[in-house]
Amino acid sequence: MSERLISLRNVTKTFGSGPTAFQALKGVDLDIDRGDFVAVMGPSGSGKSTTMNILGCLDVPTSGDFLFKGHHVERLDRDQRALLRRRYLGFVFQGFNLLARTTALENVELPLLYRGEDKTARHKAGMAALDKVGLADWWDHTPAELSGGQQQRVAIARAIVTSPDVLLADEPTGNLDSERSVEIMKLLTELNQTGITVLMVTHEAEMADFARTIIHFKDGLVERIEGHHRPALVGAA
């Protein structure tokens, strides 16, 4: 039986005030089970990015309830939300966001450095994360010495080095060609199969087909939810 991990109840988000106020979310209801692979889709301005920012504890709702493991996140202060991010969430971005003059391993170790882990522990966990994404032999290469697909793999290793419950991926294949995109989606699928819940924003239907659940946003609301998807192209050459 699936375990509920995240719930949004009548979540709204308004930017600005008075006559210039913009209501980005108009009452979003959403449930995400532990271990799901969710793709979030919708046109620009639909509310998908605002929702992902709230789910990633990067922003807070104007009103409504946001429950993570049964706890009300909207009641947490800034420092408490930061602790939740560091402990439970990993982030992957379209632009990789790697430090240019540091090695792959040093990039991956960064979240552990912020946690205050010692050098030996950082090295061991960083190498294990690089191994999971197939780049253990490239640990001493800088981003300039890696392809776009390899850079995104390093970014994913950095996101999973803390063993997060949830991986939030914002257009993770947006800067990659189709072949590299499929490679990254296969990797995300494999990580999901280890128990990590994956939440991914994408505008590409081919990438969304890897997810088991697809959530469509429109005009600040969930328009529809498609379930029971089979991961696409897994095992394909």
Score class of each variant (00 low, 15 high):
Ser2Ala: 14
Ser2Phe: 12
Ser7Thr: 11
Arg9Phe: 01
Asn10Pro: 01
Thr12Arg: 15
Gly16His: 08
Leu25Ile: 01
Asp31Thr: 12
Ile32Asn: 02
Asp36Ile: 04
Ala39Val: 02
Pro43Ile: 13
Ser46Leu: 03
Thr50Arg: 01
Thr50Lys: 03
Cys57Glu: 04
Asp59Ala: 13
Asp59Met: 04
Gly64Pro: 01
Phe68Pro: 09
Lys69Asp: 14
Gly70Ser: 04
Asp77Asn: 10
Arg81Asp: 11
Arg81His: 11
Leu89Glu: 00
Gln94Gly: 10
Gly95Phe: 15
Phe96His: 13
Leu98His: 07
Leu105Cys: 12
Asn107Leu: 11
Val108Pro: 00
Pro111Lys: 05
Leu112Asp: 01
Leu112Pro: 06
Asp118Thr: 08
Lys119Arg: 15
His123Phe: 10
His123Arg: 14
Ala125Tyr: 00
Gly126Asp: 04
Ala129Ser: 01
Ala129Pro: 00
Asp131Val: 02
Val133Lys: 02
Gly134Val: 11
Ala136Val: 12
Asp137Ile: 07
His141Cys: 15
Gly148Met: 02
Val154Arg: 02
Ile156Val: 14
Ala157Met: 06
Ser163Lys: 15
Pro164Arg: 05
Val166Arg: 02
Ala169Lys: 04
Asp170Trp: 04
Asn175Glu: 12
Asp177Leu: 11
Asp177Pro: 07
Arg180Trp: 06
Val182Lys: 12
Lys186Cys: 14
Leu187Ile: 12
Leu188Gly: 01
Asn192Ala: 08
Asn192Ile: 08
Asn192Arg: 06
Gln193Val: 11
Thr194Phe: 02
Thr194Lys: 12
Gly195Lys: 10
Val198Lys: 05
Glu204Thr: 10
Ala205Gln: 15
Phe210Pro: 03
Ala211Met: 03
Thr213His: 03
Ile215His: 03
Leu221Ala: 09
Glu223Leu: 13
Glu223Pro: 07
Glu226Phe: 02
Glu226Leu: 02
Gly227Asp: 12
His228Leu: 12
Arg230Gln: 15
